[in-house]
Design a protein around this nucleic acid. Structure first.
Length: 842
RNA sequence: GGGCACGUGGCGGAAUUGGUAUACGCGUACGGCUCAGAACCGUAUCCCGUAAGGGUUGAGAGUUCGAGUCUCUCCGUGCCCACCA
């Protein structure tokens, strides 16, 4: 037999797989088969091509789906391209190529590279988010949102990246900077299309409980959504000069501390400040403060040692509705304008931030929640005396840190003694506040002032207002232009293309203008897993057509019902609070309008751990530490690369690349190959009980481990089995075939070649996974460890199922054990069946 | 500051979930094959000790017949969120 020549083998089988359409998935499911939809987060095709880190997740889904297929599932495993967005456009501008050309080129390169690795993708279902046939439906979905008011126009100031020259969503920020380019983000007020994702906040939260996702991803989504239940309470404003009717609404989660509110704080951007201007005696100062904050970036406002700043709004007081006390009103940037009501009641005794602020500006601190029973008892004793004293006696020193926990209410009139929970309800009721729920999650700013995105399919008519583009006119194609660089004015580059912008109003036929903003990068990835399902559907209608069938049709719904939800979704953890929230929101909307029948898009999720460079840093062109998969495939073969990446360490953990270790995987495959020489149809002795037991244990372990994404231990158990087989002079072909089958998900080319050598005509991909026989797996002799008082003193071999007495007898018969036991009193004997005996002596 | 992980040989890591710690692989050493090298094959490889034996999972304590695994304190590392009232 030939030596293992990976180049010949891999080329050969990749060709065969393509010509025989081995990996094509039909929408016609056999009735007896369970579907299994295995999905990779589709890549953004960058100009740099793949490095060895990229395919790790793809290898995993490939191995996983091959196992599923061999276990009788009908699998759907597609791939496509997320090609709209800033990176593509910035790359294009830098290299002076039109994004469309760049994307085409990059996709071609990516596809070639992926092709070298022997994946079982059904390429007939390939999709590309920049394909007008695709984004026609992205636009269609946007229009459905528009119709029911889920997409709305806003003029609120939004995050603006001065370098990318576009507005951004909250999710696009990292530490107050643009996630893409790192520039510090500013606030800018420009007309925006916004999606009301906050309407779905509760469902996004509740749905998490039904998902089989890593706990920390679910937890970060919970934090991102940031639900908090609280109360809205009104404070009347009193002017020293005039009689006024103004009031300030605050939001609090701790209404129980209302008696401890010693001042109010209003965000500098709060609209009420305009109304209060006339009443204030120091409004110039307040204006100065407002200007100061306006000029600061998000980073400056939140960083700089967290020193809080603010100014008092003099000339007015607010009245605490609980005790009618007059308290000062401050303007400070530590209160955020866009959360809650943009104003808070400050309770320095029970809030860290209020405390810091009060300390700096020497504001009063009043404790109204007892830390413990002792403190409460003490309060009761002092109460009578204290009541007759001035309230200022109750002001604490600033050295005692604030108590932010819950406890019994004190200094709170008739609410004294109530638990914080009860006090919240009762005090809210008492002051006529209303309970409500707020979220940290913000609505999704959906407009980008850039060229390379899906045009938003709306038309602005001076007579009719905003008019949706009629469905029959979709897609609104992105016009081909010479110059697509961002303008920086807050207008999209599309605005300059008169021919494209000026249209007839679909309603009144009068002159009108197109919306020139485009959709964000994330739009296309919100439904691509749906698009894969519908790909073949339309192909069968019109061969080679690039159209997708009507998403709203009965036929589409039938097919989606068949495939959704995605059973296994694999990708990087960096999408935890971006793509994974957006897509869940989008999917829930599609559920509401009846396109899909499941509430959630992705049932199971696994996170890929990064492959770092050998220097421990991220692989990046910038650091010059990138390893190119093409070279590894050339030298060692795709199968070796696949085995190595799965063997490196736990799948979801970051591991540094080590080219030296790779030879271990290569050796493993060579030895599997060479073992063929010892495999004979007739004349091999029967496998020993120990070996056949090991084989069946391995069958179980490899299957279980792949299902659980523990690829590293699956491979190590295959190595153990191989080592054991290598100790034999001859093995039967059947035994060898089992080994080859177990290896095949990891090394499909090699296995396919060996399978053919063994005389099979059918692809190994179509074989079934070996059956595990528990009786055989448990039939091998076992070793029982003998401990004396917890110290291991020996071991003996026996069969399973021995009774406690039998085990004890055998253990005591061992000379090594006898030595430690004679002359001692046996206190107890602990037996772990089939594993261990511990003889405890005095 | 908050939340979540985690800490095992020279290195990547395993440990049936409380039951023989260091599986599997890399590396290293010696030997074989070779004119020589690469590749390959074999043997060895946590520490102390000739041995019997003893010690060892970041440090210390606790629970237990028994702890890498559970609890507490400390030290260290990584990731995520970060003025959300």
């Amino acid at each position: 037999m030939h030596p293992y020549d990976h180049k010949r083998v891999e080329k050969k089988w990749q060709k065969v797989w393509t010509t025989t359409k081995l990996y094509r998935t039909s929408d016609t499911l056999p009735v007896t088969s369970d579907k299994c939809y295995v999905l990779d987060m589709f890549p953004y095709p960058s100009g740099d091509g793949l490095h060895v880190g990229h395919p790790k997740g793809y290898i995993a889904t490939d191995v996983y789906s091959r196992l599923k297929k061999m276990r009788g599932h009908t699998i759907l495993h597609p791939m496509g391209w997320d090609a709209f967005g800033l990176p593509a456009e910035n790359y294009a501008i830098k290299n002076k190529i039109h994004p469309e050309v760049a994307v085409k080129k990059n996709i071609k390169r990516f596809k070639e590279q992926l092709g070298l690795l022997g994946f079982n993708y059904d390429w007939e279902r390939e999709i590309n988010t920049t394909d007008p046939a695709y984004y026609k439906w992205t636009q269609w979905m946007f229009l459905q949102m528009f119709h029911i008011g889920l997409a709305f126009q806003s003029n609120e100031p939004i995050n603006w990246c001065p370098s990318c020259k576009t507005g951004l969503a909250n999710e696009d920020l990292e530490d107050g900077a643009c996630e893409r380019c790192g520039s510090v983000v500013e606030k800018k007020a420009i007309p925006q299309w916004v999606l009301r994702i906050t309407d779905y906040a509760d469902r996004l939260l509740l749905g998490l409980d039904t998902l089989d996702w890593p706990e920390y991803i679910k937890e970060s989504q919970r934090n991102w959504i940031g639900r908090s239940e609280g109360a809205e309470i009104k404070f009347k404003v009193k002017s020293l000069k005039l009689k006024v009717e103004e009031e300030i609404k605050v939001f609090t989660t701790r209404a129980d501390t209302l008696f401890g509110a010693t001042y109010l704080v209003v965000a500098p951007e709060h609209p009420i400040l305009k109304k209060l201007e006339a009443l204030s005696s120091n409004f110039e100062e307040v204006k100065g403060y407002q200007n100061q904050t306006r000029q600061k970036t998000e980073i400056e406002r939140t960083a700089e040692g967290k020193e809080k700043t603010g100014v008092e709004l003099k000339g007015i007081k607010a009245i605490n509705p609980a005790n009618k006390e007059e308290i000062p009103v401050w303007v400070a940037e530590y209160v955020l304008a866009d959360y809650g009501t943009g104003a808070i009641m400050a309770v320095p005794a029970h809030d860290e931030r209020d405390f810091q602020f009060a300390k700096k500006y020497k504001l009063r601190v009043r404790e109204v929640v007892a830390r413990n029973i002792g403190e409460y008892t003490q309060y009761l004793e002092q109460q009578t005396i204290a009541r007759e004293m001035d309230l200022s006696k109750l002001v604490s020193v600033y050295e005692i840190p604030p108590f932010t926990g819950t406890g019994q209410a004190m200094w709170s009139g008739q609410f004294d003694g109530l638990s914080s929970e009860e006090a919240k309800k009762k005090i809210t009721e008492f002051v006529g506040g209303k309970t409500l729920t707020k979220y940290k999650l913000r609505d999704w700013v959906f407009s980008r002032q850039r060229y390379w995105g899906e045009p938003i399919p709306l038309i602005h008519c001076p007579k009719c207002g905003v008019v949706p583009v009629p469905e029959k006119d979709l897609p609104v194609k992105l016009p081909k232009v010479e110059s697509y660089e961002p303008t920086g004015t807050g207008e999209s580059p599309l605005a300059k293309i008169d021919k494209w912008v000026n249209v007839k109003c679909p309603k009144c036929s009068g002159p009108a203008k197109r919306e020139t903003n485009t959709m964000p990068q994330w739009a296309g990835s919100c439904w691509y897993y749906i698009a894969y399902c519908l790909r073949e559907n339309l192909k069968s209608q019109k061969p080679n057509s690039k159209q997708f069938s009507n998403l709203n049709s009965q036929k589409s719904k039938r097919i989606l019902k068949k495939w959704l939800p995605v059973d296994m979704y694999v990708g990087g953890a960096e999408h935890a609070t971006r793509h994974l929230i957006y897509a869940r929101f989008w999917h829930k909307f599609l559920f509401d309008i009846g396109v899909v029948e499941t509430e959630e898009p992705f049932q199971k999720l696994q996170n890929v751990g990064l492959i770092l460079a050998s220097d421990g840093r991220k692989m990046s062109k910038r650091f010059g530490n990138v390893v190119n998969p093409d070279e590894i495939v050339e030298r060692f073969g795709a199968d070796s690369l696949r085995v190595y990446e799965m063997f490196m360490g736990p799948f979801n953990q970051a591991v540094a690349w080590n080219s030296d270790s790779l030879v271990g995987s290569r050796r493993f495959l060579e030895r599997v190959w060479k073992l063929r020489e010892r495999a004979v149809k007739r004349g091999a002795p029967e496998l020993s009980i120990t070996l056949s037991a090991l084989m069946h244990q391995t069958i179980k372990k490899v299957g279980d481990d792949i299902e659980g994404f523990r690829f590293n231990t699956a491979i190590s158990s295959l190595m153990i089995l191989l080592n054991a087989f290598e100790g034999e002079q001859l093995i039967s072909t059947n035994t060898y075939e089992t080994l080859v089958t177990l290896v095949s998900p990891f090394a499909p080319h090699l296995s396919e070649e060996l399978w053919e050598h063994l005389g099979h005509k059918k692809s190994i991909y179509k074989e079934s996974w070996p059956t595990y026989d528990e009786r055989i797996a448990l039939s091998a002799p076992i070793t029982i460890t003998v401990q004396v008082s917890g110290k291991t003193r020996g071991s003996f071999s026996t069969t399973r199922g021995k009774s406690k007495e039998e085990v004890k007898e055998m253990a005591l018969a061992l000379p090594a054990v006898e030595k430690w036991v004679t002359g001692k009193v046996i206190k107890t004997v602990i037996v772990v069946p089939d594993r261990l005996i511990n003889i405890v002596v005095l």
